[in-house]
Each structure stands twice: as structure tokens, then as C-alpha cells.
Simulated scan of single mutants.
Amino acid sequence: MSAKARSAAKIPYVGLILLILIVLLIVAFVLENQEVVSVNFLGWLMPKLPVSLYMLLSLLIGMVVGPFFSLYAYLKNYRGLNSNRFS
């Protein structure tokens, strides 16, 4: 087996190890942040939930909404570059 084939065979293991590490970190975060809180946001009183759940929901919302802002900025810049080219 060549050295290139051996290094390519190790890559799935690295990804698996990273995935397990991330899952363990998330589990540790959730277990350490079990205090129940209520959030008052713009006059809306949210239900009492663990801090970890609010943090993970905020992360997920940011991961969903963030790419849309990036796409908007990219398209705005792309259109600006094209309009300047033909002026």
C-alpha cells in the first residue's frame, strides 16, 4: 500500500474522531447548564427552559439565518461590480 493510500485511509477516522469530540463537548455543555431560566425578549415572556437549550437554539438560528445575510452581501457586491464594469 502506498503512502498516499494510507493517508487517504486515515481521513475518515479523523472526521469520526472530530465528530465524537464535538458530540462530547455538546453533551458536556448541556449537562453543565441545566439551570432553568425565563427569557423576556421585547416584551415576550418565553417559557422556562434550561440555559443550554436557549444557547443551542440561538446557535441553530444563527447557523440558518447567517448564510442568507452572506448571500445578500455577496449578491449586492456582485451586482455592484457588474454595474461598474459597463459604465
Rank of each mutant, 00 (worst) to 15 (best):
S2W: 09
W44A: 08
K10W: 14
G66E: 09
N84F: 13
R85F: 14
L59N: 04
V64D: 09
P12N: 03
I22R: 01
K76P: 00
P12G: 04
K10H: 15
S2Q: 02
E32Q: 12
L45P: 12
I61T: 05
L53A: 06
S7E: 07
F29E: 00
L60W: 03
K76H: 10
V30E: 03
A8K: 06
W44N: 05
V36F: 04
Y78T: 09
I26G: 08
M1T: 06
L42S: 01
S83I: 08
A5C: 04
L42C: 00
I26T: 11
P67Q: 10
S52G: 04
L57R: 09
G80Y: 06
K48W: 13
A3G: 05
L18Q: 00
L45H: 15
P47Y: 01
V39S: 02
I26W: 08
G66N: 13
N82T: 11
M55N: 12
V30A: 03
V65I: 06
L45V: 14
M1C: 08
V39Q: 05
S38Q: 05
Y72Q: 05
R79D: 01
M46Q: 11
Y72F: 05
Y13L: 09
L19P: 08
F69I: 00
A9C: 06
S83N: 09
L71Y: 08
L21R: 10
K10Y: 14
A28L: 10
A28S: 05
W44V: 13
P47F: 05
V14L: 09
A73V: 07
V37H: 02
S2T: 03
I61S: 03
S70N: 14
M63P: 03
L60S: 02
V65C: 02
N40Q: 15
I17C: 06
A8C: 11
G43W: 04
E35G: 09
A9H: 01
Y72K: 07
